[in-house]
Amino acid sequence: MQSCLLVSAPLDADADAAISIRGLVKRYGDRDAVAGLDLDIRRGEIFALLGPNGAGKTTTVEVLEGYRSRDEGDVRVLGQDPAAGGRRWRSRIGIVLQSGAGDSQLTCLELLRAQAAYYPDPRDPVEVLELVGLAEKAGARGRSLSGGQRRRLDVALGIVGKPDLLFLDEPTTGFDPEARRQFWSLIRSLRELGTTMLLTTHYLDEAEELADRVGVIAGGRLVEVAVPAELGGRQAAPAVVSWTEDGVRRSSPTPTPTAFVAELAGRFAGEVPDLAVTRPTLEDVYLQMIGQPAEEPAR
């Protein structure tokens, strides 16, 4: 686990960067909510920001969205400082808030039409409803929708302005597994439309499923940035072979699991009882990174 690979070297703050952050600091009183954060997100990329509550995820994202001021650092979102972003800049970003877009007496279609009227070059509201799978709810009022449908409506409101960059703050919290899978396919179809996305989530499987790269934030700092499969040097970590022998559960780390299993098979002359070969899951490496007590520190 020592061999933390820094897979992607920081990009230059060039035209390819949708988001570029250097030395971001945000203080609440004498507490550093964000304590010197550097990050680049490329155009067209889906980037997932992972981290426990209070790690600085939402604060960071809200600085990028222009909701919060910062105390130090240089931040560029679509080439502009979000603290000075005007209507023109706002028309190029879409925001799906954790809290959603609020209650309304308007129908889904009316809400989308109103929202589209704020943007210079919006998508067709009817097409957006189809894209998020709410076409048959066009005439339904926002408050009559289920939780999952409301979240889709929030996304519809976030994308109707045809943003170059979409922020998604914990978009699937409270979803059942079926709703979450449907939501994921919606996000994938948005990627095909070329939208850059910054996603914050609690769900590791969500990050693994959707993101091109994952950043883990803890204590206001970015602990690591990597593609999901390589986070925490996961792909290089030794495999663990476990089996049952003489009624005792045994396990052994090995760099050569195939040879190890072949040898085991010879020893048992046939099926190895309860054989399993595992590598650290994203959750294992994640918990270790954010400083949660690992179950088996020296595996």
Partner: peptide, 13 residues
């Protein structure tokens, strides 16, 4: 309920 925050995040004047 978040309506205001949502609106503040759009280019609505």
């Amino acid at each position: 309920d978040g309506t205001l925050k949502h609106l503040a995040g759009t280019p609505m004047p």
